[in-house]
Amino acid sequence: MNNKLICDKCKREIKLKQKHTKIVKIENDIERMYFKCHHCNTKYTISYTDDEFRKNINTLNVIRVKLADKSISVEAASELVKEYDTLMAKNKLISQGYRKKYESVV
């Protein structure tokens, strides 16, 4: 990860690298991944995760490996893509739900 972003608050460039992301526990199994502007310290949430979200990520990684197998049938690949898309949609909803719940608190 090496992306350039512009801070909404100070309008300066943020050079985001993996090492700049932080993870904090919000409550129980819920974690917030975020980064801060190096200039004004404004925090930007990347995602909120829980155990289900993280389990889905592991399953998505397994699916990617299976899809990379050249000997996989078209039917099997199609089913894996459907499962992948379903898990991605679930994770998006999970993170959005926590964002809605916690953004006014954070």
Rank of each mutant, 00 (worst) to 15 (best):
N41G: 01
K19F: 02
N61Y: 09
V81H: 09
N61H: 05
E52F: 12
E27P: 02
K22R: 12
S47T: 12
K100N: 05
K92D: 13
E52T: 13
N61T: 00
L87I: 05
V74L: 14
A77C: 09
I30Q: 06
K36G: 07
K9N: 13
E13R: 07
C10F: 03
K15V: 00
K15F: 02
C10E: 05
A76C: 10
K101Q: 08
V62S: 13
I6A: 14
I72F: 05
K4G: 00
C10Q: 04
V62W: 06
G97Q: 02
A89R: 07
C10Y: 01
I14W: 06
E31A: 09
R64A: 13
L5R: 12
Y84V: 04
K101I: 02
K100C: 00
V106T: 12
R32M: 15
K70L: 06
K36N: 03
T49R: 06
K19R: 12
V74P: 06
Y34V: 05
E27L: 09
V81K: 14
T42A: 07
Y48M: 07
T49I: 08
E13C: 04
T42D: 04
S71A: 02
K90D: 11
E52M: 11
I6D: 11
N28L: 07
Q96R: 09
A77I: 10
Q96K: 12
A76H: 04
I30N: 01
H38R: 00
E31F: 15
D51E: 15
